[in-house]
Every structure is written in C-alpha cells, then in structure tokens.
Amino acid sequence: MIEVTSVTKKYGRKKVLSGVSFTADKGQISCLIGINGVGKSTIMKAIMGLTPIQGGRILIDGQPIDKHLYEKVAFIPDTIIMPPQMTIGEALLFMKDFYARWNEGRAEELLSFFKLNRDDRISDLSKGNAAKTNMLLGLALDVDYLLMDEPFSGIDMFSREQIANVFTSHLIEDRGVLITTHEIHDIEHLIDKAVLLDRGTVLKEFLTEELRLSEGKSVVDVMREVYQT
C-alpha cells in the first residue's frame, strides 16, 4: 500500500500541497483527479523521492522511499525521460542494465503490442509513440506499484485506446496502479478508487464501485457535487 499522510510541499512561498492524505492499494487502480496545477504531478514526484516535502510522511508498504524501492515502484512521467539521441532499443538495454526487475519477455510483448520499432530514435517518435515507449519502459519492470502521470493527455485517439487497453490487461494485474488525470471520461469505468484534489488538498477519496452501489452516483456526479459547492 502507498500511504500518503498529511503531506505539505512549498515551492518558495507558494504552498503546492497542504496536508494531502490518501492511500493507493495493491491490486487496485487509483486515480488522482484534478485540474492542471492542483499538485498531482508534485504528489507523484514526492512519492518517488524526486522532490523533497516539508511535512507529512509517505510510505510504500510501510517503508519510506529509498534506492531499493526503485525496484518495487516505477514512475512513468508525462513525457519520456530517456535522452532524445537514444534509440528505443538502446533505451531498453539501458533499463535492462540498471534494473534487476526488468522483464525482457514483457518488454518484447509490449514492443509488438504497441507496434514500436527498436531502431527508431526517441527524438523522431510521434507524440503517441513516445508516450507508448514511455509506458513500455515502466510496464516492463516487474514492480508492485506503477505510477503514471497523465498517461492519456496530448496524444491521438488510437494511441489513447491502445494505452487504455493496458489497463484492462494482465499487464497491470495484481499491481497497484496510481494514475493522474484531469479528464476522467475515458477511464471512468476502469478505476477502482478516485481521489479528488483541489488546490493542494484532497476533497474526497472513494471507491467507485461502492459509491455506485450505495448511492447510484458516477464519478462525474461526485465531481460535480464536490467541485461546484
């Protein structure tokens, strides 16, 4: 379980997160929802130890982030983070070199699933293919938790569909997935948990199926209630 407890974060004098708390469980898809600039990416970076926090605590299966956990949690940022002059093949080799949990069979499978070409240079990829390569580099790690920042934003419809198919496949089975989005429509029925954020705080955290069962409300219904009052 990823536990985020009362996390505060400031950039200079500007408070970006003011007491954010939520959990993301293994075997579930949790989704941080909020408009751009509410601190979704900052939360992701904080979980990965890529930016310091000023208060609160973040634990992954009871442990604070350290180098060993990078074999347990993978982060897929919203842009590809491999050097542009690398080819896809070289990027895969780099990952294989550095991660004990790199699953080569899965990487091959994803390469053909996404129809990507090993010899293509990263700088030459279309936005959709860059996003898929970025996904591949995270998904081919045998990690327990996957963090994905805005996996659907800024790419064409067909790439979106392909990436959405990842969420209905064995690729994420039994893993804990935490994604951020500012656009819930495409994936509303895919997520197990929704965490609604606004201006650095969590407004509501709920399991989507439970809420549908008990109150007959969709995620969008809840968002309407929460954000418009």
């Binding site: 990965m48 130890g49 890529l50 180098k67 060993h68 990078y70 074999e71 982060f75 940022p77 842009t79 590809i80 983070i81 491999m82 050097p83 542009p84 780099f94 550095f98 991660y99 004990a100 990263i122």
Partner: peptide, 12 residues
C-alpha cells in the same frame, strides 16, 4: 524536453 535526471535519480 526529455529530463533524463528523472531516470538517473530513480536508478536502484
């Protein structure tokens, strides 16, 4: 555009 430092800081 491609922030390789993300990867470097996340190497186990």
């Amino acid at each position: 555009k491609n922030m390789f430092i993300y990867r470097l800081l996340m190497i186990p």
